[in-house]
């Protein structure tokens, strides 16, 4: 249990069995009145947000959270299958994966947050490498990086890449922004 004075931005708490992170926190005290702690909260499982105010004597539940590093193995329909350090398979449903789905590459390591043993959040490495499966042919000699064209990478994610990138090239993508960062290798 946390008491209200433990609350701070970034703290993870539990309300009615659901895990939340405090995204904004303020201490307020009306003149002569009691201290109030106001929190903006984000549900870690659903992403839904809400606000809640706590009084000095309020108690707040602490969620049972564990984090594990898993290695991506394969996709089975809507499910994503990972291996843990003991090579046990762990299945994470596509809706928990969220936007991370776009960037899955075989064998990459991800950090997965579990609440009461249930996976709720997948954190990717900041960069992943993917091969281009389709883009219009590049213009020879054009190394400008400020002119962009659409491209599709393995797994179907589409993004903008510089003109000199060709089908079969491998590029580096920033998973936080979803944007092209660099060319890693050229098609042989």
């Amino acid at each position: 249990m946390y008491s209200a004075s433990d609350l701070r931005k970034g703290l993870k708490i539990e309300i009615d069995g659901a895990p939340y992170v405090i995204t904004d926190f303020n201490f307020v005290k009306p003149g002569k009145g009691a201290a109030i702690y106001t929190c903006k909260l984000k549900n870690l499982a659903t992403g839904a947000t809400m606000t809640r105010a706590y009084r000095n004597n309020d108690k707040v539940d602490q969620p049972q959270l564990t984090e594990k590093r898993l290695h991506y193995s394969y996709c089975n329909g809507a499910d994503y299958v990972f291996l843990d350090e003991n090579f046990e398979e762990i299945v994470i449903a596509g809706d928990v994966m969220g936007d991370s789905k776009r960037f899955m590459v075989e064998n990459i390591s991800v950090d997965v947050l579990f609440h009461n043993g249930r996976p709720i959040e997948v954190t990717l490495p900041n960069f992943v490498e993917k091969a281009i499966v389709y883009t219009e042919p590049g213009v020879r000699g054009d190394t400008a990086t400020n002119v962009l064209k659409p491209a599709k990478v393995e797994g179907g994610y589409e993004l903008q890449v510089p003109l000199f990138i060709n089908q079969g090239d491998t590029i580096k993508i920033d998973t936080r922004t979803g944007e092209y960062v660099d060319r890693v290798s050229v098609r042989k």
Partner: peptide
């Protein structure tokens, strides 16, 4: 109710 007064005042 003291505590409720402050809470409702703020919220």
């Amino acid at each position: 109710d003291d505590a409720r007064f402050s809470l409702d005042l703020v919220e």
